[in-house]
Design a protein around this nucleic acid. Structure first.
Lengths: 142, 142
DNA sequence: TGTGTATGTAACCAACAAAGTTACATAAGG
DNA sequence: CCTTATGTAACTTTGTTGGTTACATACACA
C-alpha cells in the first residue's frame, strides 16, 4: 500500500551524513550509495533542510551537513519532514450524504485511526538517527 | 502518502451490514451509500469473505451478510483483510551493495519500522466494528 | 574578479497502483 | 425457466512517485 519510499531514502541520506560529519557531502556522492539520481537526493535534502535537520553549502567543497547531532534527531522528525502525516486514507470520493453512515463515518474512522497513527508515531519517536547509525555499523562489521 | 482507501471502504461496508443484520444487502445498495460502483464493493466483499468476515447469497433476496457479531470483528482484522501489511516502504530500487550503508540499511530500517507498525496494529485491535457502529449511530442522531 | 563547482527548484516523463467501468459466467430462488 | 445477484476478469482512467533534464543562483578560491 505505501507508495512513497521517501522516509527510507531520507534515513539513508542522514545516516550517510552522520557517518562522517567532518566534511560536506555532495548529492552526487550520496546518490551513489542510494543508487538514484542526485536530483532526487537534493529534492529530499530540501525537505530535510526546511525541517532544520540539515544544512548545505554551495561551491567547491560544498554539499550537505547534519544540522545537529544524530542522537538529537528522532526518526519521527525525519518521517514528518518527508512524508504525509496520515497513514490511512479515507474514501477517495465523499460517500453519500443522504445516508446516516455515509454522512458520519469519516470523522468516526478518522478519530480511531488517529489513535493508531499516534501509537505508530510515538514508537518512531523512541528511535534516533544514532540508533540507526549504530545498527548499520554493527551490521556492516559482520 | 497512503494511496489505498480500501480500509475505509471495507469498514463502511461492514458498518452498513452491521446496522441491519436481518437481511442480506446487495452490492448495488451498499455502493449507493459509499458513492461508488457495485463492482468495487463486490471486489472488497471478496476480500472480506476470504477473511471469514462476511458471507454472500446469490439470487433474489441475496446479497452480503456479516459472518459474525460486530463485537467480534476487530478493526485490525478488517485492515489485514484488505490492505498490505506494511505501512512503510523501502527504497524502490535496491541501494548500492558496494557501500556499507547501502548494503545494510534496509534490514535495520525494517526492524525499526516493524515495531512502529506493531504499535499501530495493536491499537487497531482494541477497536471492534461494534464501536464504529455505535459512534456512527451517535453521530447520526446529532 | 573570474572560473569552476554545487545547490535548489522547476518542468517533464515514465512507471506503477488504485479505483472506476464493463462484461459475463455461474448459481440461487421462485 | 427466468430473474436476480454474486464473483471475477479485463480494460480504462486517474493520481502519485521517482527519474531525468535543465538552469539560475551562489559560494570558494585562485
Amino acid at each position: 500500500m505505501p507508495t512513497s519510499s521517501r522516509f527510507a531514502v531520507a534515513v539513508h541520506i542522514l545516516t550517510y551524513l552522520a557517518r562522517d560529519r567532518k566534511r560536506a557531502h555532495r548529492s552526487e556522492e550520496i546518490a551513489g550509495s542510494i543508487s538514484t539520481n542526485p536530483s532526487v537526493v537534493r529534492r529530499i535534502l530540501g525537505d530535510l533542510a526546511r525541517a532544520g535537520l540539515t544544512t548545505s553549502q554551495l561551491g567547491k567543497g560544498g554539499g550537505a551537513l547534519l544540522a545537529r547531532g544524530p542522537k538529537k534527531i528522532s526518526l519521527l522528525e525525519i518521517f514528518n519532514a518527508v512524508e504525509d502525516q496520515s497513514l490511512v486514507a479515507m474514501h477517495r470520493t465523499p460517500p453519500s450524504r443522504s445516508c446516516d453512515i455515509g454522512r458520519t463515518i469519516q470523522p468516526v474512522l478518522q478519530s480511531i485511526t488517529k489513535t493508531a497513527e499516534d501509537a505508530f508515531f510515538a514508537e518512531l519517536e523512541t528511535y534516533s538517527l544514532k540508533d540507526v547509525v549504530r545498527s548499520v555499523q554493527t551490521a556492516a562489521a559482520a
